[in-house]
Computed example of a mutant assay.
Amino acid sequence: MATPTHTTAEVDPTQAPAVVVGQDVEEDQPQDMDSLFGDRAGSSTTSLTQSIMEYRELHGRTYHNLGDTYYWGPNDEKQNEQLDIGHHMLTMLLDNKLFLAPISSNPQNVLDVGTGTGIWAIDFADAFPSSQVTGTDLSPIQPSFIPPNLKFEIDDAQMDWTFAPDSFDYVHMRCLMGSIRDWQRLYGQVYNCTKPGGYIESMEMDIQFLSDDGTVKEGDVMYDWSTLFIESGEQIGQTFKIPRIAKSLIEAAGFVDVVETKYKLPVGPWMEDPKWKDLGRWNLLYLDEGLEGMVMFVLLKIMGWSYEEMAVYVGNMRKALRSSKNHGYYEIVVVYGRKPEFKVV
């Protein structure tokens, strides 16, 4: 995303309460549920600041409130528990590593885009005390007790970045599918703010449930669940298909030596190999824990379903996920690339 800039909310005490990561916030619960996300003018810091604390409620779940920025997942405690389960699962997937990119052993400046609960950034900061880690997210849901070399900032990564060009050794992002309108612009902003020789790494879930033995196929609830998500993303211009095109977009942004690694992550303990059987158990827990939160906004606010229809569908999906007859999986795609040391002419 021109020299990119990055917008970080700076609190104006005359405009909004102070944002302190880890501090309890008062949730706004409007009666008008037809407008889940309020209006926000342009990309001004003031409007971003005013909307930070104004969470919106949908059937007891709270959501980010950033105007024209749609994020389909809740930001409440239940959903955050799912995110932490997902972190454990994805770390296991990478053989107990936090990343795949061949970064240096003493990185200095690291950015975690869409940090969520901040758990990846905390683990990275602990593992690399030489680094200064910044985690950014739409909501202040991160803990206050963190390593001294870590800070969290409230930020919409889709706005213009104000980080200095060539400032990060490593930029990490994970599970942003369905939440970004212009991935090419985002990767371009990462490129401009990455040091020559530094790395980007993007890990995304391909949400299409599949099977190799025909137990999950078109017409089955697990397969069609994914189709609903993908259709909703196309409707609002925030694709869930990013795992399939991330490599080409990262290359188009200017990164070189781009490597793509794909994993088939099973749902449930149906595989024989101990590692994958264990991962399947964790994945089933991850999906079961977050099922309602994952689909509520998609079905009610984008696809126009009633709450009752959604509840029945969630029940059918949960039954399918737990069935030992279904040998389903979805792909995790990790892409990393290096910014050239010299400008490519």
Rank of each mutant, 00 (worst) to 15 (best):
Y63K: 10
M222R: 03
Q29F: 02
S232I: 01
M317C: 13
I245C: 06
C193F: 01
E81F: 02
R40Q: 10
Q158K: 01
D137T: 12
P165W: 00
K151A: 12
S226G: 14
L176V: 12
Q189Y: 01
M205Q: 02
L287Y: 03
K195C: 04
Y263T: 06
M310D: 02
G38R: 05
I141F: 09
S43N: 12
R56I: 00
W72H: 15
E308C: 01
L36I: 10
T239H: 02
L83P: 00
V344F: 00
V335Q: 06
F163N: 06
D257F: 01
V110F: 02
K275G: 08
Q29K: 11
H64E: 09
F240Y: 14
V113L: 09
L66W: 12
Y191A: 03
G304S: 12
P102I: 04
E234S: 07
F128N: 11
T227H: 01
Y170H: 09
P165G: 09
R244C: 03
I230Q: 01
P13M: 05
G197E: 06
A246I: 06
S306F: 04
I141H: 10
T117N: 05
V190L: 13
T46E: 15
F99Q: 05
V20D: 07
I146K: 10
G290K: 04
V333G: 00
G86H: 04
V335E: 04
T227C: 09
G280K: 13
V312K: 14
